[in-house]
Design a protein around this nucleic acid. Sequence first.
DNA 1: CAGATATACTACGACAGACGTTGTAACGAC
DNA 2: GTCGTTACAACGTCTGTCGTAGTATATCTG
Lengths: 121, 121
Amino acid sequence: MITISSDVIRGYNDTIILYLLLDKPSYGYEISRMIRQLSDGKYVIKETTLYSAFTRMEKNGYIISFSRSAENGKRRTYYSITDAGREYYREKCEEWNLTKEVIEHFISLSGTRALPDSGAR
Amino acid sequence: MITISSDVIRGYNDTIILYLLLDKPSYGYEISRMIRQLSDGKYVIKETTLYSAFTRMEKNGYIISFSRSAENGKRRTYYSITDAGREYYREKCEEWNLTKEVIEHFISLSGTRALPDSGAR
DNA sequence: CAGATATACTACGACAGACGTTGTAACGAC
DNA sequence: GTCGTTACAACGTCTGTCGTAGTATATCTG
């Protein structure tokens, strides 16, 4: 079974997290679950990756944290996206479209299809 | 101007290089130029990245190197893809399709579009 | 009530891939 | 003769991911 390797998604974890903060603040565990759900279980972010992304993005000003008690009284660290975060997200979306375009020049659909003559030689 | 960040393409440099070796052996400088051409200048691989990819992939058995003199007498290190390399390439192509699918769940086309109600709250 | 499971993190260190910098060497152009 | 292009190799740094472990509370199970 093919799974997503971390090196591939690397550089998009931040984007994914920001997407999930676009409409409302959220916290680690919820974001983790949402990623799993929205990807149909195809991508499960590692906890350490997630929390280190939070730290990094707060340092960069893309999100801000605040502590709030949940209904049951447990403390949680919530994060909400900043304007800079929205801007960064927007840029990453554009970058993604470009990247996709570029990589698809080097992906053959079947994976083994004979190449059209490259013109070399 | 939007450019491709290395973290995005990370994990696909090997795939890109293997693609360019599918039909014939090649060498560093040529591959570098082909990447630039095929991506319309949108992606220019760094030399160190390229040559370290060669070393890594040869160690992994995806490519084999041989030295040959060019017409002008200059020595070049050529690389050709192995069966294991073709197999690896094929897997990466499948993985790419999956990754693309997953990431696009988290990319909104406009980058700022209002989200459909997430159902939360 | 004990123990398992889910929630909600934090800390620490390792690792791999990308990259900056530098150096080398051969060739043709001017 | 030196400048630009070709064609690499070596070395060290940085960043993001991840393995491992630990802490603490809440809820569920028997």
